[in-house]
Write a protein that binds this DNA or RNA. Structure first.
Lengths: 140, 140
DNA sequence: GCTTGACCTCAAGTTGGCTTGAATTCGCAG
DNA sequence: CTGCGAATTCAAGCCAACTTGAGGTCAAGC
């Protein structure tokens, strides 16, 4: 149960073969070797795919993810860059929580217009504060 | 300070005019009226733009956001759909937290290979559990 | 009353992230 | 061996979300 071919990786990860090949092209993953033409993957690939999917969910681009995970096995970014990314994520998480609260609020609040509702207004004030429509990560 | 033209909205929100017009086309926002040809926006538009940007950050598509926010002012989705979205967000938030922890871990952990590090492994086990390589939201 | 600059429309172009298809190549069960 | 199903490459296509450009309009300051 150590070596997987592309079909097995696809089955276990839910990521289609075409995408796996594409990810390889982009430097996100690499097979451990080939048997004839066929790619052979080690199990760490599944881990990497999990991380990649989390990174995408966080809104990072594939190139950004490459840099965070490293071409080899380990990150390409200096410690503090990684912490900076983590800090970004923290802000991002707070925004999502706010959106979550807002969704629950509009689901439940009976006020005719939310613009009148004090608790909605409070959410919006917080939202504005976190707005930080941030520049993307420095590419250099 | 009640009515804004497109340039002011752009300046205050950081969203370029071209995007504002595009959002209008997609039913995400609407001007309160026109002066001649020029769009005139009310201040609630800024609020809506904040919500839209949060929705995008959460990975919702523009059509999904339209349904969550409603074409008019209020949501188009039934209470329980909204709660379902909020639940999705909760899962999403947990994944981001996990990624955040992972980033901090790889930034700080001195282990030669993270595959050996027990705390890394713990993170990865959690990650697999939340993997929930989810189908997108039901469109119906 | 003219100029000017911010706005308008509409069509076409761009980018990222994949998918699809045609034409092969191969490993392995029978 | 033979055959077949799963993999391969490579180019082209697709979709969402915008951006750009050409050509036109208009309100406001001088």
């Amino acid at each position: 149960m150590k070596i997987l071919d592309i079909g097995e990786v696809a089955a276990q990860s839910g990521v289609p073969p075409s995408t796996l090949r594409y990810y390889e092209e982009q430097g996100l993953i690499a097979p451990i070797g080939r048997k004839g033409l066929r790619r052979q993957y080690g199990p760490q690939t599944l881990l990497r795919l999990t991380l990649i999917s989390m990174g995408k969910a966080a809104g990072f681009s594939l190139p950004e993810i490459v840099r965070m995970l490293g071409a080899d096995g380990r990150p390409d970014l200096p410690r503090d860059e990684l912490h900076a990314r983590a800090d970004d994520l923290g802000r991002q998480i707070r925004r999502l929580q706010l959106l979550q609260d807002t969704l629950r609020h509009v689901a439940d609040c009976p006020a005719p217009s939310h613009l009148d509702c004090p608790s909605f207004q409070k959410l919006m004030r917080q939202a504005e504060r976190t707005a930080a429509r941030g520049g993307k990560h420095a590419t250099r």
